[in-house]
Every structure is written in structure tokens, then in C-alpha cells.
């Protein structure tokens, strides 16, 4: 039987209790996008500051929502900070792979799939790290949307 401990792993609760990179960034220079989950009213705001070399030098997360959406956003912020935009896009694909989503259209133009990144490959280079803890979400299909909310919002802000 699937247990709640598969969903509410300690590291997830830790990111929920103590969210990383919580706050706002000034726009501009930062970019901002908002994501909604109409099902449960969750809302995520992603602020992204990208330097001239295409490196994400700062990120902040706003909004509110359930433990899964909030911890996923927190872990995402840690994972992408200091990464290039290109690597962040690869992480999106890797994370969606972790959530068993293999879309042809993730960032909008479908180029990620064309890159042919598999989860293992991406996680090796990209260090999904703590995010691996969200693997259990797949066993609770209605929560996948919670876990991917911040990632869809990130894709949105990258495309802007």
C-alpha cells in the first residue's frame, strides 16, 4: 500500500517549513511570472535575474500553496541558482521526467525534447539533488500538478 511517508518525506517538509529564496526581486532588472493551479488556488511567483552571460544570478519565490507546491518551488530555486538559462531548461525537462511527464511542449517551443535529455543524464549533470525526494509524488497523481506548478512558471519566465 502506498503510504503518506512516500509523499511527505522529511526533506520536503523541511523545504516547506523553511522555504529557501523566499521573497521578491526588483523588476526590472529581474523578470517575473505568476503560475496558478485553479484546482486548489495555489499560486507561485518566480522572480529571475539573469546576467549578461546567461547565468541565473538570483532567484526569488513568492506566492502560497500546499506543502508539495511550496517545497518543489523552494528546491527548484536552490537547484537553478547559479546555473545557466540553458541548464535551467534542462532541469525543467529532467524534473518533468521525474514526474513522469514526457511532453513535447514544455518550455513552449518543444526544443527540450529535441535535446533528448533523459532523467539520469540530466540529473547527473544538473544535480536534481533534493528534488529526488519528490519522486513519491508520482504515486499521488493529483499532486503532480502541485509539484510542477513552479517549474511551469519557471518555463514561463524563461520564455519571456
Amino acid at each position: 500500500m502506498i503510504g503518506l511517508e512516500d509523499l511527505y518525506r522529511e526533506i520536503i517538509l523541511d523545504h516547506y517549513r523553511t522555504p529557501r529564496n523566499r521573497g521578491e526581486l526588483e523588476t526590472p532588472p529581474a523578470r517575473r511570472a505568476e503560475g496558478f493551479n485553479p484546482l486548489c488556488g495555489d499560486e507561485i511567483i518566480v522572480y529571475l535575474q539573469v546576467d549578461e552571460a546567461g547565468v541565473i544570478d538570483d532567484v526569488a519565490i513568492g506566492g502560497q500553496g500546499c506543502s508539495i507546491s511550496q517545497s518543489s518551488a523552494s528546491m527548484m530555486s536552490v537547484a537553478i541558482k547559479g546555473k545557466t538559462v540553458e541548464d535551467a531548461r534542462k532541469l525543467i525537462v529532467a524534473f518533468k521526467g521525474l514526474m513522469s511527464i514526457h511532453e513535447t511542449d514544455i518550455g513552449g517551443d518543444g526544443s527540450e525534447t529535441a535535446l533528448g535529455i533523459d532523467l539520469e543524464g540530466a540529473s547527473e549533470g544538473m544535480q536534481l539533488g533534493d528534488l529526488e525526494a519528490l519522486r513519491g509524488v508520482v504515486k499521488f497523481p493529483i499532486r503532480i500538478k502541485c509539484a510542477t506548478l513552479s517549474w511551469n512558471t519557471l518555463a514561463q519566465v524563461l520564455d519571456e
Binding site: 503518506l4 486548489c40 499521488f140
Partner: peptide, 26 residues
């Protein structure tokens, strides 16, 4: 301050069906 979605998830594990959300009354 537990989010309703989490409350409903935990209750579901005990076979209890409640709704979590804005109930179409934003």
C-alpha cells in the same frame, strides 16, 4: 496553517473524502 490540499490528502489516506479548494467561490 496546514494547506487544505495537504489536509485532504492525509484524510484520504484514512478513507475520508473532503473537498479542498476555493469551492467555486473565489
Amino acid at each position: 496553517d496546514v494547506h487544505p490540499h495537504d489536509v485532504a490528502q492525509v484524510l484520504d489516506q484514512s478513507g475520508i473524502a473532503v473537498r479542498a479548494g476555493h469551492h467555486c467561490a473565489k
